[in-house]
Simulated assay, not measured.
Amino acid sequence: MRTAQPRHYLMCRPTHFDVVYSINPWMDPRKPVDTPLAIAQWESLRQTYLSLGHTVETIDPLPGLPDMVFAANGATVIDGRALVARFRDAERIAEGPAYLQWLREHGFADARTASIVNEGEGDYLLAGEWLLAGTGFRSDPRSHAEAQEFFGRPVIGLTLVDPDYYHLDTALSVLDEKTVAYYPAAFSPGSLAVLQRLFPDAIIATDADASVFGLNAASDGYNVVLPHNATHLIEALRERGFNPIGADMSELLKAGGSVKCCTLELRSAG
């Protein structure tokens, strides 16, 4: 029997959401963006978390930072310690200090900005005792050693090779401490071999699942919130004893983000 564990999340309302630049293949400034719809989809996601008994806090969105809604990129928080993102792209650099300030003002005294490019939970996913760490498009591989020293947990480097899946959280989802789902084509041959060795019972996503960002999901160990149109993945989750909950994040996908991108987990000490 799978058991849901209460989560503590940080989110950022997409008040200023727009696509005015392109830093990943999903972003096309020529396509219209419906900001009120993005807000409605985000609010529905927030309400879903609350209905599941999770704690959701919010950080104030800042003008001029349309991607700040993607709170997962802001930091990695484990055991009450926060390693705040150092973004690769100039358009997002100012998000880092905003997240650092919020974390310090809300009880995370042991918070500091990464020294090397590191895009938070976009590329760092905790799976049991291991910290799975993506690289290839955003986070610098040298940041893996920095994260290991900071958190004192073994870091498993994984190389992404498809620019459509530019962050680890677009190609892999941690479902519980021992179970993950991932899209094999997003990884280098060596990294795929590592995943097969570490997680022989993983759920394998199809091309169709990946293309709708089905792996950009948030799990509490039982309930898995994910894009509603990842139909094969939803059925696979159900067969494995999880409770999939579909969400419509289509407007936020225009900027290359979905459920997990909007969700930073705040893990306290102990």
Rank of each mutant, 00 (worst) to 15 (best):
Y99M: 12
D164F: 12
P36R: 10
S250F: 06
I245H: 08
R88A: 10
A127Q: 12
R92T: 07
P244H: 05
S250K: 12
Y21C: 01
F108L: 04
F108Q: 00
H8C: 11
V84R: 04
L83N: 01
L10P: 03
A230D: 07
W26I: 08
P32D: 12
T170K: 06
A85L: 05
R138K: 14
C12D: 04
P14E: 07
A75M: 04
D89K: 14
G96M: 13
S191N: 10
T58H: 03
A90G: 12
R138N: 14
F137E: 02
F108H: 01
N216T: 06
I156G: 04
R240Y: 11
A186Y: 05
G157T: 13
T231C: 14
A111L: 11
P189W: 14
R46S: 10
I245N: 07
N118V: 06
F70Y: 14
L125H: 07
C262D: 06
L131D: 00
R2D: 00
V212G: 13
E235P: 03
R267T: 10
E235R: 14
T159P: 00
D60A: 15
G221T: 07
E177G: 04
D67T: 04
T206G: 13
V212I: 08
G128S: 09
R2A: 08
A133K: 02
G152M: 06
A133W: 04
S22K: 02
A98R: 15
S44W: 10
Q101M: 10
R112T: 02
L126A: 13
A210C: 09
M249Y: 12
A185P: 10
V174C: 11
R138A: 14
G257W: 09
H167P: 01
I39S: 04
L103V: 09
P66Q: 08
G136C: 11
A82K: 01
A202Q: 03
A217M: 10
D169K: 01
W130Q: 15
C12G: 05
L195S: 07
P244M: 05
A186K: 07
P244R: 01
T48H: 08
G96E: 12
Y99P: 00
G128F: 07
A210K: 04
A210Y: 09
P32L: 07
L266N: 02
V20T: 15
S173M: 12
E177R: 15
T48N: 12
D169Q: 06
R153N: 00
I59P: 02
L132C: 08
V225C: 13
P63D: 14
N223R: 09
E235Y: 09
G152V: 03
H16P: 03
M249G: 06
G214D: 08
G152L: 05
A255N: 06
P244C: 11
L62Y: 13
T135V: 07
D169E: 05
A40V: 07
A85C: 10
S51A: 13
G134K: 03
F17C: 03
L237F: 09
Y99G: 01
R88T: 09
S188P: 00
C12L: 11
E265W: 03
D79H: 06
S51K: 04
A230G: 09
V33Y: 10
S211F: 00
A40F: 05
R197S: 00
G152D: 01
R104A: 05
E105T: 15
S143F: 13
A111D: 03
A145K: 07
F137Y: 11
A133M: 05
L50T: 12
R104E: 06
D209N: 11
V56S: 09
T263D: 03
D110A: 01
T206N: 12
P63A: 11
